[in-house]
Simulated scan of single mutants.
Amino acid sequence: MGDVMKKVVIIALIILGLIIIGNFVYKYINKTAEQDPKMGNSEISDDLQPVWVEIAQAARGDIITYISETGMTLPVKSVVVAAETAGRIVQMDVKVGDFVQRGDTIAVVDDEIARLALDQAEAQLINAAAAYEKARKDLQRYQVLLKNEEVSESEFENVRVQHELARSAFLSAEASVKSAQRQVRNTRISAPISGQIAEKNVQTGNMIIMNQPVVKVVDIGEIKVIVRISESDISKIRKNIPVAVYADAYPGFEFMGTVFTLSPEANPESHTFPVEIIVPNNQQKTLKSGMVVRVNIQSDVLENVLLIPRDAVIERFGRNIVYIVDGQKAHERNVEIGQVKGEEIQVVSGIEPGETVVIVGQYNLEDGTPVRIK
């Protein structure tokens, strides 16, 4: 008797356990069906229970289309400042990143030799000027003597030749002084443009030679971006059209520029056309040279097109559909979609302006499902 009771209790417990598990599975499946819109809601459809939905109205608006490319920032103005004289650097106070104005002193080369050369040239000029003045007076005097037939033609010719030689010597000495003065000025290396020091190639105490690079100055008040546009898109771009520029270094920040130049010649290998974009920098000079940026070039404006929220469009069996609310029921419509504008999408055909589309709850609908609007 005891064994029989034990078996009955065990069987009862097993049955109770199966009931509990079955109930749990049933609730889980129902909950999953409610949370997963792709499973549909056949129970609602079969029982014709209203589905709570949110709606929006189809309306007309404009869409701006863009061509998106990636490029690299470059300074509009960039100058490598080279030495115009040889010697030892005796002063150089700038460092990379410093701002300089046009004409500011960047470095100073020892000018002792240059000044000695200038002193010598000036002394030679004084002597040449005195000799030239004497020769000029002699020529004037001999012109009078020749006219009075007091000197011969050959004597006058000798004086004239001496005058020409003295004049040439004076002009040469004058040019030597100007050259020596230039050499003295060249010992002071100055900024040819306003901007920032991007590279520094020498230090105080270094010996430099003629044409040796000293610093690189860049002006990033304006930045240029070179992008390469495909054959299919180049006809959509025009000079001066607006361009939005985005840098990964500044997420969420937008810089605005314009198309500056379009090359008439494609790269023979990539078959793309170089397009130069000019972007005014802000006061903080946020954009730097050498950054990788993304650009959106405005290519077209679609005016007065029909727009609905993107969430209203769902794909089923390879078709794009929306649900239109008519009265208290939702009706399925096939739609042809076009361009995207943020959270909106263009509808080319399938619905009319003013019709109401479901934007929340659409995954639980079928054609003819009763709805209630939240």
Rank of each mutant, 00 (worst) to 15 (best):
E155K: 13
E133M: 12
Q143P: 06
D104G: 05
I106L: 15
N127K: 12
V159C: 00
Q140P: 04
D111F: 04
K95T: 13
R88W: 06
V100I: 09
E150A: 14
N148W: 01
G97N: 08
V96L: 08
T105M: 14
V100Y: 00
E155P: 09
H163Q: 13
L118I: 03
A86D: 06
V108S: 12
N148V: 02
Q91F: 13
V109T: 08
A130Y: 13
D98C: 02
I106V: 15
K95C: 05
I126Y: 09
I126C: 04
A117T: 03
E150H: 09
Q101S: 15
A107F: 03
D138S: 10
V90H: 05
A128K: 01
A107T: 01
E149C: 05
L145N: 00
Q140S: 15
L116I: 04
Q124L: 07
F156G: 08
L146Y: 11
D138V: 03
G87D: 00
K137D: 13
E155W: 06
V161M: 12
M92V: 02
V108H: 10
A121R: 01
Q143W: 11
L146Q: 13
E150N: 12
E149I: 06
E133T: 13
V151D: 04
L116V: 04
A117G: 04
L146G: 10
H163F: 15
E150R: 09
V151H: 08
K147H: 15
Q120R: 06
D119P: 02
A121E: 02
S154P: 06
D119T: 08
D93R: 11
E112C: 00
R88H: 05
A86Y: 05
A130F: 12
R141W: 04
R88F: 05
R136V: 09
G97S: 07
D119V: 03
N127R: 12
Q120T: 08
A131M: 12
Q124V: 02
Y132G: 02
V90A: 05
E122S: 13
V151Y: 07
Y132A: 08
R136F: 14
F99H: 13
G97I: 09
L116C: 01
A135K: 01
R102G: 10
Y142V: 03
V94D: 06
L125W: 10
E112Y: 07
E122M: 10
A131P: 04
D93K: 10
G87V: 03
A128E: 01
V161I: 15
Q91V: 11
A135D: 05
E133H: 13
E149L: 11
E155Y: 06
Q162P: 01
G87F: 00
V109L: 11
A107C: 07
R160N: 07
G97H: 08
D98Y: 00
N148Q: 14
L116A: 05
E112A: 04
V90K: 08
V151W: 07
G103R: 07
V144K: 15
R102H: 07
